[in-house]
Every structure is written in structure tokens, then in C-alpha cells.
Amino acid sequence: MQSLTKAEEQIMHIIWEKEKCLIRDIIEDLGNPEMPHSTVSSVVRILEKKGFVSHKAYGKTYEYFPIVAKEDYTKTGLKDWIGNYFNGSPSQLVSFLVEKKELKLKDLNELMQQLESLKK
């Protein structure tokens, strides 16, 4: 799966949230009414070329929808990120978070409960 630029990812989050949308819906959700329609349209076409979205045409109007699930993209991205920064080891990631005090005891307890439930 290809990675996304920040702009592509931002737009992709809107498409995942809406499930079906027009370019004007994306512009509205971006909160930047000054953003040119052509710019957003270009990014969406790139997402389509990368295989993340597809469209259904209603005359000259295109309705876009995701064809890559957010969960699948997240899983792949996280796996790559852990591979690049923590030698592919989720435990090294957790150790890092604990060391930097980014992971609280409550969070660790929740993780332990999840791991215990997997054993059953």
C-alpha cells in the first residue's frame, strides 16, 4: 500500500468519515472556503490513482467513496512506522512510551487486560 502525503491523508480522513462525498463536501469539512475546488479535486484524483478512492458519476458530478478501509491503512502505516523506528518491535514502542512518560499506568493496565482476554 502506498503512503499518503499530509494533504492526501487529511482529505482521506474526510472521505472515510463521510463514506460518500462530493468535492464541495470535502472543501466544507476542510474549513478553508478559500481553497480552490481544482486543488482538492487534484488531490482526490491522485487518491484515486493510488487506489484509495473510487467514484460514481452523476453527469458531470462525481461522488467519491473509499475503497481502502481506514483500519487497513492504519494497520499498514503503524506496522511500517514500528518497523522504521523500533526495529519492528511493538514492545520497544511500549517501552519507549513508558520511558518518555507518554503511557500511564492506567493505559498499561488496559493493555494487559486486552492481552489477557486474547489468551482465553
Rank of each mutant, 00 (worst) to 15 (best):
M1L: 10
K6V: 14
E8N: 01
Q10F: 08
I11V: 13
W16M: 06
W16N: 04
W16V: 05
E19H: 12
I23D: 01
I23Q: 03
R24L: 13
R24H: 11
D25V: 08
I26C: 11
I26Q: 01
I26V: 15
I27N: 00
I27M: 04
D29N: 15
G31F: 12
P33V: 10
P33S: 09
E34G: 12
E34P: 05
P36Q: 14
H37R: 11
H37A: 01
H37D: 04
T39A: 05
T39L: 02
T39P: 01
V40K: 00
S41E: 09
S41T: 07
S42Q: 10
S42Y: 07
V43I: 15
V43N: 04
R45S: 08
R45V: 03
I46Y: 01
I46F: 02
L47P: 00
E48D: 09
K49E: 04
K50Y: 05
G51V: 04
V53G: 00
V53M: 01
V53A: 03
V53W: 00
S54R: 14
S54M: 14
H55A: 14
H55C: 14
A57V: 09
A57I: 06
Y58V: 10
Y58E: 14
K60R: 15
T61Y: 04
T61H: 07
Y64K: 01
F65D: 01
V68C: 10
E71V: 02
D72F: 05
D72E: 14
T74K: 06
K75W: 10
K75P: 01
K75M: 08
T76H: 08
K79W: 07
K79R: 13
K79Y: 11
W81R: 05
G83W: 07
N84I: 06
F86H: 07
N87K: 15
G88C: 11
G88I: 13
S89F: 03
P90K: 02
P90M: 03
S91H: 09
Q92E: 15
F96Y: 14
L97K: 06
K100A: 09
L103Y: 05
K104P: 00
L105H: 07
L105T: 07
K106A: 11
K106R: 09
L108R: 03
L108V: 12
M112G: 05
Q113V: 03
Q114F: 06
L115R: 04
E116A: 13
K120C: 08
